[in-house]
């Protein structure tokens, strides 16, 4: 069962139709815990993008030799391997970036979105399609995290990317973990509303 979507459609699918945060509602722990600033969201997004692409390609390459009964352990093993390798390579060759991103990379092993994409997509599709799907999912996750981070940073700290734009702190509440749930809920409602309006306009 190969996908009939083009590469571009796969990428767009990850960002809009099946956005990991607002549509699939996966990996909520990091989305709620870490999306306190735009920069945090961006860092985690980059880390997820790399691990997702590498893992998707690996699983898709080996899909015929993975025993169906031990799919999930194999996926976890693959993700853990890539996370460890990326962590070591970053530490060795990009120490500056590692100083900022190290803690984000180590968080990824248990992310639901990556396992889910391997199970739903990579284990059935070609390497090429899995690669683009991985890119789409990674970008979709990054987009979601940055959108959440933008709202929370602006309302919680009064800054964007660390620059003071409001000059005061409106509501510290938004930086705290539980506000993440409110933000995700409100933004999900917003995106659903946009979709409804869009469909109505299309029908009319």
């Amino acid at each position: 069962m190969a996908t009939d979507k083009t590469n571009l459609q796969l990428v767009v699918n990850g960002i809009l139709n099946e956005n990991p945060i607002f549509r699939l509602v996966l990996s909520m722990c990091p989305a709620v815990g870490i999306s306190t600033t735009v920069m945090n969201g961006f860092m985690l997004g980059i880390a997820v993008l790399f691990v997702q692409v590498f893992s998707s390609c690996t699983i898709s390459l080996f899909k015929n030799v993975i025993h169906p009964r031990i799919r999930i352990p194999t996926y976890t093993l693959t993700i853990a391997t890539w996370v460890t390798v990326i962590d070591m390579v970053l530490a060795a060759y990009l120490p500056e970036a590692y100083g900022k991103m190290g803690i984000f990379v180590k968080l990824i092993v248990a992310f639901a979105i990556i396992t889910m994409r391997l199970e739903m997509f990579a284990c059935k599709e070609s390497v090429n399609a899995s690669f683009w799907d991985g890119i789409g999912m990674g970008l979709g996750f990054m987009f979601g995290m940055m959108a959440l981070g933008f709202v929370r940073e602006l309302l919680g700290l009064g800054t964007v990317l660390g620059y003071d734009v409001l000059g005061f702190k409106p509501l510290l509440f938004f930086v705290l973990p539980f506000a993440g749930f409110f933000c995700v809920g409100l933004m999900m409602a917003f995106f659903n509303y946009v979709e409804i309006v869009y469909k109505r306009a299309k029908r009319a």
Binding site: H67, I70, T74, T78, T81, V85, M88, V89
Partner: peptide, 17 residues
């Protein structure tokens, strides 16, 4: 299969290390 998968993963990580 699981043993082979683990060995492969170990090999990759060891090489990277």
């Amino acid at each position: 299969r699981l043993t082979v998968a683990c060995l492969l993963a170990g090999l990759v990580m060891g090489a990277a290390f």
